[in-house]
Amino acid sequence: MTHKQWPLWEIFIRGQHGLNHRHVGSLHAPDAEMAINNARDVYTRRKEGVSIWVVPSSEITASSPSEKGPLFDPAESKVYRHPTFFDIPEEVGKM
């Protein structure tokens, strides 16, 4: 049998109006249309979504685990980016 394995698709679902699409998993399908059909059956059987994106897995570029340090460590020393860094006296009120 000359069966060619279908490509893998990453599935993103918008759970409710107003929310981001979120990655929920992956599945195999011969094309985008079938990927959407299958995603409907696999990931939204209980009304989990109002919109579906499908993206060929091979089109996704990911940061590599070994780059974790250089990519994310610089943010560690910049706690002043969080509002809780600043003490505002109580008498100033809500800010």
Binding site: Q5, L8, G25, L27, H28, D41, V42, R45
Partner: peptide, 22 residues
């Protein structure tokens, strides 16, 4: 139908370890 879905979630998880569905 749920069982089929559960099988698919798990096959996908296994595939991330470098084995193909086939």
């Amino acid at each position: 139908q749920d069982e089929a879905g559960h099988g698919l979630y798990l096959y996908s998880a296994a595939e991330t370890l470098g084995v193909s569905r086939d």
